[in-house]
């Protein structure tokens, strides 16, 4: 057995208790969600979006938690001492952990999907026998691509989170980065949208498409429309955001492997100095939000944002003594605030 197989099979075995627990909880949640229609519609109406809502919810939860659980051992110096000398290259280790997390996500999600599918098929059968109303003409032909789409977006989100957590020095920083990346692009998109609206008459997209979970959350509604209209009812920006998240997901796989491979064990526990971390996220998020807020109407909120950036830097540096670059970034807040005055 090669070192990769040894390491991967060990990690897989080690994850089994965790996987069983997550699978059980997820299945319970799916069962509860699928039965919501009984409570909401007294068993006379079958809503595809309500019955299948558990699936995007479970996928999002898995995408958030699995990278944390999978990478937590690598954010602990003591654990690194017992892992990093093993006769397995870091490249193989990174791939093994990526795949291990992926196996957990895919297996739990498919289990819940299968349950949902059987439930839907049974209900549709029941509805054909009794007087009832099905929201949309349901077909297995729609359910399979629905599951595949959620899975693909889920894998993209999982990959992005694996990358951002691996860029962090501590698990807490990793979780903070997860949060930043979840909404980060939304605020940047919102700022760009506001700038465009301020200087041109262009209004061609919804910034909400750039919230990391948006493609998954919107899928039940897209599929509902697809079933009714028998064609996709997507805007150009929907397609753009789908492609963008896909590209980001693929890039994140390589980013994760590279970051993991280059990770210095001695830096674990130290402040997160990655360019993909606080260093970039604090000013980018801060400035984007400042641009999006109308300064003339809400100067207080702008000041609050500067304060939030300051707190962000304190968290980043783990000290109230900030670096010169941090103060420069804070002082530069005047520029997005000024820009906000012009565009709004």
């Amino acid at each position: 057995m090669t070192s990769f197989k040894k390491y991967f099979s060990y990690q897989l075995k080690r994850s089994l208790p965790r996987l069983s627990t997550i699978a059980l909880i997820s299945l319970l949640i799916t069962m509860i969600f699928t039965r919501l229609d009984l409570i909401l519609y007294e068993n006379v109406f079958l809503s595809f979006t309500d019955v299948t809502l558990a699936l995007p919810f479970i996928m999002i939860t898995l995408c958030i938690t699995i990278p944390i659980l999978e990478l937590a051992p690598f954010k602990n110096r003591r654990n690194l001492d017992t892992l990093m000398f093993l006769p397995v290259s870091r490249l193989k280790m990174s791939i093994a952990h990526y795949l291990n997390g992926l196996v957990q996500i895919v297996s739990v999600f498919l289990l819940c999907s299968l349950y949902t599918l059987f439930y839907l098929l049974k209900k549709i059968n029941d509805f054909s026998l009794i007087l009832g109303y099905v929201e949309v003409p349901f077909s297995i032909n729609y359910f399979v691509p629905y599951v595949i789409f959620i899975l693909l977006f889920g894998i993209a989100i999982y990959s992005i989170y694996m990358f951002v957590i691996s860029s962090a020095g501590t698990l807490i920083d990793g979780i903070a980065f997860q949060l930043f990346y979840s909404v980060g692009l939304f605020f940047v998109a919102l700022a760009i949208k506001n700038i465009l609206a301020g200087f041109t008459s262009l209004k061609f997209y919804n910034a909400e498409n750039f919230i990391i979970f948006d493609p998954i959350i919107d899928l039940p509604y897209h599929f509902k429309k697809l079933m009714l209209l028998e064609k996709w009812d997507l805007t150009a920006i929907d397609y753009i955001s789908f492609i963008m998240w896909g590209i980001l997901g693929i890039a994140s796989i390589f980013g994760f492997i590279l970051t993991f491979k280059k990770q210095k064990a001695e830096k674990i526990g130290d402040i997160s100095t990655s360019v993909f971390g606080y260093k970039t996220l604090i000013p980018v998020l801060g400035y984007s939000m400042m641009i999006s807020v109308d300064t003339s109407l809400d100067l207080g909120f702008q000041l609050l944002l500067i304060l939030a950036m300051y707190v962000g830097y304190i968290i980043y540096r783990r000290s109230a003594r900030l670096k010169k670059a941090d103060y420069i970034c804070l002082a530069s807040s005047i520029l997005p605030i000024f820009l906000s005055l012009i565009i709004h």
Partner: peptide, 16 residues
């Protein structure tokens, strides 16, 4: 080198 590490065992002062 992975092969070299097959010959090495490290016991830290406070193993995890």
């Amino acid at each position: 080198n992975e092969e070299t590490r097959e010959d090495i065992f490290f016991l830290p002062d406070d193993p995890y």
